[in-house]
Amino acid sequence: MALLFKKELLVLLIFINVDSYASNENKVKTFKQDPPSIQVVSEIYPPYQVINENGDLGGLSADKVKLLFHHSSIDYQVKIYPWARAYQLALTQPNIFIFSLLRTQERESLFQWVAPLCSIEFSFYRSKKRPDIQVNSLAEAKNYLIAVQKGQASAEYLLRLGFEPKKNLSISYNADNLMQMLVYDRVELIVLSSTYFASLIESNSKYVDKIEPIFPIDYLTRNLYLASSLNTSLDLINRLNISYDELAPQFDHDCKK
């Protein structure tokens, strides 16, 4: 009986040791697995995000973002969406980075702000065939129908000031549509950035000689950022912060080069 008990005890100890080894082995494998690819979302918005002659994503902001992730040794994948969808993904999904995102008071608590990329400024634009449209204040702008891009800070800001959809505010899904709406008299004003307008001049856009800026929106003169969703890994944020501190002297934040 004693001999049988010793044999059963030995088998039990062997089983426990094997199970413990298997458990530790699984932990090692899990620890060594490469992390999933991080998703970075954006839109095409010259000159900050463009498709270059090689068919790759480039631009004043995109080049900095790629450099930051490369320097941080973070595996990532950039996906281009309409801006409203990119914004919603970064607002609701974990481990999503987004650029170029204007940093405003309304958005401050909605994202983690990783690194400034470029400064930007916005103005109201009118059709050159409508010199009668005059704006000297935001209050005067309420007298006109204005088109803005969905998901952009300009739309959020004007809504907060009391502009009303279908009354004096029209929402579009991209910047190209804004210019078409203005040129074809579907709206009276649009909101564009000065750098985007300058990129139209360089690309000989068919709209560029038909529109002009008439009033700057000072509140929207701010920095564009690389940001992330709130539930993004702090380790990723810290690694990118460290890379930014090391690379910042190389960055032209005015984005005039």
Rank of each mutant, 00 (worst) to 15 (best):
L145W: 01
A62F: 12
S37W: 04
I120F: 02
P131G: 06
Q134F: 00
V28P: 11
P116Q: 05
P47A: 10
V65H: 05
N54K: 12
R103I: 08
F111E: 11
L145S: 01
Q88T: 04
F31A: 15
S73I: 01
G162N: 10
S127Y: 05
Y87G: 01
A84Q: 06
K27E: 13
E106F: 14
D132H: 05
V148T: 15
A153M: 10
I80H: 06
P36T: 07
Q77C: 08
L57R: 02
H70F: 02
V78E: 06
Y76H: 12
V41M: 07
E140S: 04
I51D: 02
T30H: 03
K166A: 14
L161F: 06
Y21W: 15
G59I: 11
Q112S: 13
C118I: 06
S100C: 04
F111K: 09
T30E: 11
V65K: 02
F163K: 10
F97Y: 13
Q88G: 01
N95S: 07
D56F: 05
R130P: 00
L169S: 03
W113A: 08
N24L: 14
Q88C: 00
A90F: 02
I98N: 04
L101F: 02
K27Y: 06
A153D: 09
L57F: 09
I74A: 00
A84E: 03
Q88R: 11
K166F: 15
K79N: 13
Q33F: 07
K79G: 00
A86S: 13
A84Y: 10
W113T: 10
V65E: 05
E121P: 00
I98L: 14
I98P: 00
R160Y: 09
Y48S: 06
N52Y: 10
N26E: 14
F122V: 01
R107V: 03
Y76W: 05
V41G: 05
P165C: 04
S123P: 09
S23N: 15
Y21A: 13
W113E: 10
A115E: 00
R160N: 12
K27L: 14
L67F: 01
K29V: 11
K79T: 13
K66E: 09
V78G: 01
E164S: 12
E25H: 12
F99H: 02
K142D: 05
E108C: 02
T104Q: 11
D132V: 02
A22E: 10
N143T: 02
V40H: 08
P94M: 07
Y21L: 15
L161G: 11
K167N: 12
Y144K: 08
A90D: 05
K79Y: 04
E156S: 15
A155F: 06
D75T: 12
A86R: 01
R126Y: 03
P165K: 02
A22L: 14
W83G: 00
K29F: 10
N136I: 00
D132K: 07
K142F: 09
F122L: 11
A155M: 14
K166E: 15
S37P: 10
A62I: 05
K166Q: 15
R103D: 12
